[in-house]
């Protein structure tokens, strides 16, 4: 991977705008599920944790990597499951209509 620093920075800045834009209109009803869903998405640190555990050397790096993969997995699966449980309850309402 040879992305230049300026290239990475460009991606960062554009992502800020996308992040603002994408949730600019949201009713307070959905604040909690949205927060929880975003929470699951930053669990993508799992990818970084896997890379570190898969490419590290020595006990210290491997220990850090292993703990990171475990924690990130909790973040990802817990985040998506709990969000789905919340949203499941909204579904019941649609069925009634």
């Amino acid at each position: 991977m040879t992305e230049t620093t300026i290239g990475l920075f460009t991606i960062f800045v554009l992502s800020v705008f996308v992040g603002f834009e994408v949730i600019s209109k949201v009713s307070s009803t959905l604040h909690t599920p949205l927060m929880s869903g975003a929470n699951a998405i930053h669990g993508v640190i799992l990818v970084g944790s896997m890379i570190v555990l898969g490419s590290g050397h020595g006990a210290a790096q491997l220990t850090l990597g292993f703990i990171a993969v475990v924690l990130a997995t909790i973040n990802v699966v817990g985040g998506f499951v709990v969000t789905d449980r919340m949203l499941e309850m909204f579904k019941g309402r649609d069925r009634r209509k």
């Binding site: 991977m1 040879t2 992305e3 990475l8 991606i11 960062f12 992502s15 800020v16 705008f17 996308v18 992040g19 603002f20 994408v22 949730i23 600019s24 949201v26 604040h31 949205l34 927060m35 975003a38 929470n39 998405i41 930053h42 993508v44 640190i45 990818v47 970084g48 890379i51 570190v52």
Partner: peptide, 28 residues
């Protein structure tokens, strides 16, 4: 923090996803 880690690892996915959450979370 995830976005910064993405910069460390040079993984664009982490930068995009982390920044998305950072920006939308700030707005929220």
């Amino acid at each position: 923090a995830v976005a910064a880690t993405g910069a460390v690892l040079r993984t664009t996915l982490l930068i995009v996803a982390g920044t998305l959450v950072g920006a939308s979370g700030t707005l929220l």
